[in-house]
C-alpha cells in the first residue's frame, strides 16, 4: 500500500517537474520572441552599427530567424530534449558554459542570503517573543520594518554607508568573501523580516498550546520551552516557504548583482533579455527552475525532519506537492 503510494508520488512529482521545465522553456521562448525588434540587428551592434547587408543576412540564416516561429520553437524544444541548450547569440558561448561560469557566485549569494535571513529571523523571534510587551512589540515592529525594505534600495544605502563613507567593505567585486557581505545582507534583511513574521506568528500559536503550559508548570525555563517544544512547530511554515524564497532570491539577484558589480546569473539574465538572446534567457530561466525543484526537494526533507508529528508527516508533506 505505502509502496504503491510512494511510486505514485514519485511519478507525479517527476511529471510536475518536467511540466515546470517545459512551461519555463515555452514561456521564455514566447516572451523573448514577442519582444519588438530584430535580433539580427542587435547582434550586429544595433541601430548605430555599420554592417553590410550580407552580414545581416548571414546572421538571420545562422540563427534560423527567417523561419516561422513555430518551426524555430520546434527546433529549440527538440534540441533541449537532447540536452543542448544552444549557443548564446550575444555572448558567443555555449549557454551551458555561461551557466557553468556564472552560477556559483549567484548560488553562493542566494544561499548565503537565505541562511542569513533565517539567522536574523530566528534571532529576532527568539530574543523577543513573549519577552514582555516592550520587547515583543519591538521585535514585531523590527520584523515588519525589515520586510518593508526594498532590497535594491537597502543595497544602495549599505553601499553608501559601508563602502563610500566608512570604507569598511569593497564596493564591488565577486572574488572575496568580504564582497559578498553587503549583497547578501541587502537580500537577507528583507527576507529575514518576512520569515520572522511568519515564524513569530506560528511561534505564538504554538506557545498557546496546552503542552507548553504544562511544560512550564514542570519547571522548564522559557528558553528551554522555546527550544524543545515550540521551535519545531514554529519553524514549519517558514521552512515550507523557503524553496519559494530561494527562487525569489535568485530573481532579486538581478538587481543586487548590478548594484555591487558582481558576476552572476541575475545580471546575465537582465543582459540576455535586453539583447533578446533567446537561448541564454531560456537557459537561465531553466536553471532557476531546476534550482527551485531541487530546493523544494531539500526543503521537503528538512520539513519532514523538523515536523514533530512524524507519523503523519509523509502524508502532510505529500499534500504540499500533490
Amino acid at each position: 500500500m505505502t509502496k504503491r503510494l510512494a511510486s505514485q508520488r514519485l511519478i507525479s512529482r517527476i511529471g510536475l517537474s518536467l511540466g515546470m521545465l517545459f512551461a519555463s522553456a515555452t514561456l521564455t521562448f514566447l516572451a523573448v520572441r514577442m519582444m519588438p525588434g530584430d535580433p539580427a540587428t542587435i547582434i550586429l551592434g544595433g541601430a548605430m552599427a555599420n554592417p553590410t547587408p550580407g552580414a545581416v543576412a548571414a546572421i538571420t540564416k545562422e540563427y534560423g530567424l527567417d523561419r516561422p516561429l513555430i518551426v524555430q520553437y520546434g527546433f529549440y524544444i527538440w534540441r533541449l530534449l537532447h540536452g543542448d541548450l544552444g549557443i548564446s547569440f550575444s555572448q558567443h558561448l555555449h549557454v551551458a558554459e555561461v551557466l557553468r561560469q556564472q552560477m556559483l557566485p549567484t548560488l553562493a549569494l542566494a544561499s548565503l542570503s537565505l541562511f542569513l535571513a533565517w539567522a536574523l529571523a530566528l534571532v529576532s523571534v527568539f530574543c523577543t517573543v513573549r519577552r514582555g510587551r516592550v520587547l515583543s512589540s519591538l521585535g514585531a515592529s523590527l520584523d515588519i520594518s525589515a520586510a518593508a525594505l526594498p532590497p535594491f534600495w537597502l543595497g544602495i544605502v549599505l553601499l553608501w554607508i559601508f563602502a563610500f563613507r566608512l570604507h569598511l567593505l569593497p564596493p564591488a567585486g565577486s572574488s572575496s568573501l568580504a564582497s559578498l557581505i553587503m549583497p547578501a545582507l541587502s537580500l537577507a534583511i528583507p527576507l529575514g523580516g518576512f520569515l520572522a513574521q511568519v515564524t513569530r506568528e506560528s511561534m505564538e500559536i504554538a506557545l498557546d498550546q496546552p503542552f507548553i503550559l504544562s511544560a512550564r508548570m514542570r519547571g522548564l525555563s522559557m528558553g528551554q520551552v522555546l527550544r524543545r517544544h515550540a521551535l519545531r512547530h514554529a519553524l514549519l511554515p517558514g521552512i515550507a516557504l523557503s524553496a519559494w524564497a530561494l527562487g525569489a532570491l535568485l530573481g532579486e539577484t538581478a538587481v543586487i548583482e548590478a548594484i555591487f558589480s558582481r558576476k552572476g546569473l541575475g545580471r546575465t539574465l537582465v543582459y540576455a533579455v535586453s539583447a533578446q538572446d533567446m537561448p541564454l534567457t531560456t537557459g537561465i530561466v531553466l536553471f532557476v527552475t531546476v534550482a527551485y525543484i531541487l530546493a523544494s526537494l531539500v526543503i521537503e526533507i528538512i520539513h519532514e525532519l523538523v515536523d514533530p508529528r512524524l507519523a503523519t508527516s509523509r502524508r502532510r508533506s505529500a499534500s504540499l506537492w500533490l
Partner: peptide, 13 residues
Amino acid sequence: VLFSFPALILALL
C-alpha cells in the same frame, strides 16, 4: 508550475 517561477523574473520577461 507558474507559482514556482520567481515573480520578478516573470515580470522582467
